[in-house]
Design a protein around this nucleic acid. Sequence first.
DNA 1: TATGAATGAGGGTTCATTCAT
DNA 2: AATGAATGAACCCTCATTCAT
Lengths: 214, 214, 214, 214
Amino acid sequence: MKARQAPVISVRKRPRQARSARLVAYILEAAVRVLAREGAQKFTTARVAEAAGVSVGSLYQYFPNKEAILFRLQTDEWDQTSALLESILFNSDEPPPDRLRSTVRVFFQSEWEEASLRTALGDAAPLYRDAPEARKHKKTVTRQALTFMEEALPEVPANERAFVAGVVMATMSAIGKRVSGEARSKSEADAWALAIGEMLCAYLQRLAERKRSH
Amino acid sequence: MKARQAPVISVRKRPRQARSARLVAYILEAAVRVLAREGAQKFTTARVAEAAGVSVGSLYQYFPNKEAILFRLQTDEWDQTSALLESILFNSDEPPPDRLRSTVRVFFQSEWEEASLRTALGDAAPLYRDAPEARKHKKTVTRQALTFMEEALPEVPANERAFVAGVVMATMSAIGKRVSGEARSKSEADAWALAIGEMLCAYLQRLAERKRSH
Amino acid sequence: MKARQAPVISVRKRPRQARSARLVAYILEAAVRVLAREGAQKFTTARVAEAAGVSVGSLYQYFPNKEAILFRLQTDEWDQTSALLESILFNSDEPPPDRLRSTVRVFFQSEWEEASLRTALGDAAPLYRDAPEARKHKKTVTRQALTFMEEALPEVPANERAFVAGVVMATMSAIGKRVSGEARSKSEADAWALAIGEMLCAYLQRLAERKRSH
Amino acid sequence: MKARQAPVISVRKRPRQARSARLVAYILEAAVRVLAREGAQKFTTARVAEAAGVSVGSLYQYFPNKEAILFRLQTDEWDQTSALLESILFNSDEPPPDRLRSTVRVFFQSEWEEASLRTALGDAAPLYRDAPEARKHKKTVTRQALTFMEEALPEVPANERAFVAGVVMATMSAIGKRVSGEARSKSEADAWALAIGEMLCAYLQRLAERKRSH
DNA sequence: TATGAATGAGGGTTCATTCAT
DNA sequence: AATGAATGAACCCTCATTCAT
């Protein structure tokens, strides 16, 4: 019952020793397993601890509460996504639209591959969503999107470009989530990626053309 | 708490008498109030019953379980949305793109206006999502989208058109949900509607042009 | 962990039906048993519920939390004490000092007779002590003491009289508590009552004489 | 949590080295801080260890359990009180009643000054109260009281004098505790000290007079 | 038909104490 | 000697659902 009060979520103790780090990893892996296999509803600290082969007490030594585990899972995902964007959005000589299309494809694939985890993590969102730490992590991704937009829409004024970046991010992530939940096959996920890539490119192109025609 | 087992959700008893129908309405209104005011986490049968001025027992006479109430709320929303689409998507002489834009705008507005309800209902989705009855209700909306697409993309083959319809629906609904949760003002919601309308139109236009150029 | 924040303690539901009233009584009796037999440390809602032959859930239907049970026990004691004072302090033609002595004796006896309960309730005091409702109940006793003092020390100014009343109450209750915890026999408790009665009377007499000699 | 079974409390290891003695002192000071600042409820070994800048393990090297720390705190207080009595009750040429009054005043002041510690230590009493070692420490104080009484009530038979000494001690300590918890200002504590001093003197005087008149 | 008291499994979290390092 | 990670029983409380009245 803490969804609304933005629970404290910062890591209780920064483990310095390798052993501790391994334990944290075990717990997170167990958490992923529980979440993927049993769903958000059955995601309990007791189950996670058991799945990790650890006592509840130990679990609480590394995470201040249940929400913190979920938040960490989400954080890790954001980091991965951010790395993924980095590697595709900027590491290539292809024109921006092609890079955007690739990004969507890879992103949708990665979402689809761990669909049950993504869905469950989405279901658990109310528990960690309001954490103040969340915003910080979103910023990295936002900045990447902005950088890309500068390349893709150089002629558009900065503030409009920022807004468009938000629209593109939201579209990718919102539809990616839906695809991960509903796509029945890898190729279906790919078809969606193709369509959304196309849609985003059409949108960007139109924006660019409109500027030019002024 | 039966998310994964797709709880039985069909109405336990079709109320024939006016009194019963009124009771169901009271309960649903109370449910909306509880959901909007207290959030998904505090959505309990006891609270709904109390808000409705009804005993828990009575509540269970009309709804087999908690999920059924939520499902019904969602169902009602779909019906409203469907009516809304009907009224805008087809009742006008404007060209399809303009009608699509209007639809997005009106849809985003309606989502934004009852943001807290939408968010809470989304949070509760794991509880009713897997109900078998859900699909049936989605069909109505799907059919409307299809009909619209026939008008908007007459030259595109039917199976592709169906897919595109799905993409457009998903985009509208997924982003609409996000906007309802995050837009801070009515005008911000409108800005998003403008952008997404533009994006969808650009996409449809490109699809149409591509067909023509073949 | 609620001692410091003055937990909400007011009765959750004023039971109207005889059955409910009986249940509340059962629970309170069970609470007394648990407290007296197991001590404040082992006073848990589960144990009380079991001792009452009732489920934990039922217990929480009548008391919002553990503290409320303890508070109610204390409240009931205050009421009894207040009745006891009433019956002895005012219902007699004897001179005030004799009545005070009787009061102390009867009070110490009653404390001693349920010593283990008194001690345990005292131990649990941190849990209910800070409840805002507590003050109200103390007032009744305070008023009785004041009334008695008007009779016993008519020549002493009102504000000083009030202070003396407080001193007398505190002495009786603080030492009564200690006696209930440490007196080994009924007659030992009586010996203490005699001594404290004597002490209080000597004090009051001196105050009276001092006034007169001015 | 062993209140009723009179936990073993004797020091596990008599530290001979200066270092160890310092550690014990650190722990006790930390314990006082934790108790005064956080209250009895939050008095945990982990918190004390952290406040002392020591590991829990080290803490357990010098104290067999949590109760032992509390007990030691209480013991130290008794020692201080005893020294205080010693310095006032006997180091003066004033007549016994005046010395008693001074004692009460100084005692109440010292209680009031560390009120939060006293209250918390009182709240924690159930944890250490039943320790067998406790009695030994009380004896010192008792003996002092007896010695004083021999001076104050020379004509009263020894056994009665012992009882009266107990009454006086109990009154001072029980009311002192209450004052430390409830007095709002230093001067309020002083007013109580004055009144209780007066009361005790009146009592002793009456006892003396009664003997003489026989 | 309506009520709402009763149930009790289950949830999150704490903490005294131990023991391998 | 010192550390502090690990343990897990125990605690308080909630809530979907039932069923006697």
